[in-house]
Design a protein around this nucleic acid. Structure first.
Lengths: 203, 203
DNA sequence: GTCTATAAATTGATAGAC
DNA sequence: GTCTATCAATTTATAGAC
């Protein structure tokens, strides 16, 4: 695509991008605290110090903002786990790194917890997103456990598909417990502990 | 307390109780689908065929209705699991019965999933309720696993407190996966499978 | 016990000035 | 790019008739 730059300075592009980013972060906070349905654009706008109409210049509908947030979150997760899914034990280690990082960002954990629960409703604007995400994630982890099984890293009798489901379920359930009482749970340690009886190797 | 019955027939009591119950059930449906914060009293009222003001005669605020729903749900769970928490392997079996029953009532599973996520927010009207509920539940299951450890029903090296946390986390996480795609998961079977490596006995 | 009417607040989105 | 003003819809809760 050829773009003809007509007087629009790099500065204004950068500023707009920075503004979008600010809105994105404020949106994540608000939707984490109140959920998407009951979080308001006005509240998001206030937190970045602008009017609600001003916000809608950057994201033209509330659903647009949600979509941008979901993309942003997925990118971050990929960076933080730093690994392709489905790559044997390194896939599991990547997920554990993500859990460790999550314990430093309660807001993001709350966002995931609240949005994924809301999105179980078929008419929620993020429903399809979460259905796809979980199917992708569990399929990928199943492949990882299959690879591990072939390399003798899995205890006999452990079903790769079940182990994958179990690991993801564990992570989600621990997040809920952690959000309700942060001091009581070490998510990463509990996750490792629950994997140990399934593996013949150390993580 | 002495009550002077002045003309009020038994029938009208029964009718009121039945009405409250109808509202309760409709409320559970609405809050399951839309969450508490964004579910509306009007919608609940419509589903039982009455006006929103009429509903408020039975539950004088929205929070009142929520509190009644939470109590009702707890009673049902106790009945359905049919067992005291903290009683060894029977405690775990009770929980498994509850999981089996839950697969026949998706609405109740969705209600729990959505409300517990919403309630991680400290200013949510159900926050204290869920904090207490989880601490009670995990403490109780910890005792159950401790009893099992003493009776040699636990594999060596399994921490009762961790096993308790893990079991609850697993159940919650599987509920989320099940709500997003009901055909893909057998919650009860997956839960049993995840417990097997921890026990020296059959469930 | 249930209704209509209404108050008072909040919501997402649009129009148009600057 | 941001604002003010505004619309139309929706919310919980109250007042008061029947």
């Amino acid at each position: 695509m050829t773009v003809t730059q007509t007087g629009r300075s790099r500065g204004s592009y950068a500023k707009t991008a920075a503004r979008r980013r600010e809105i994105l972060e404020a949106g994540m906070d608000v939707f984490a605290e109140q959920g998407f349905r009951s979080g308001s654009l006005r509240e998001v706008a206030e937190r970045v110090g602008m009017s609600q109409a001003g916000l809608l210049h950057h994201f033209s509908t509330k659903n647009d903002l949600l979509a941008a947030i979901l993309d942003f979150r997925d990118d971050r997760d990929r960076e933080e786990s730093g690994i392709e899914i489905g790559s044997g034990i390194e896939g599991i280690r990547g997920l554990l790194r993500l859990v460790e990082h999550n314990m430093r960002v309660p807001g993001l954990v709350e966002l995931h917890c609240v949005l994924s629960a809301e999105a179980t409703s078929p008419d929620h604007p993020a429903h399809e997103h979460f259905v796809r995400r979980y199917s992708w994630l569990i399929d990928g982890m199943t492949v990882s456990f299959e690879v591990m099984a072939r390399e003798g890293q899995l205890v006999a009798g452990v079903e790769p598909a079940s182990a994958a489901r179990m690991l993801i379920a564990m992570m989600d359930g621990l997040q809920l417990q952690w959000l309700l009482d942060r001091d009581s749970v070490d998510m990463a340690e509990e996750t490792r502990r629950s994997l140990r009886p399934l593996l013949t190797v150390e993580l």
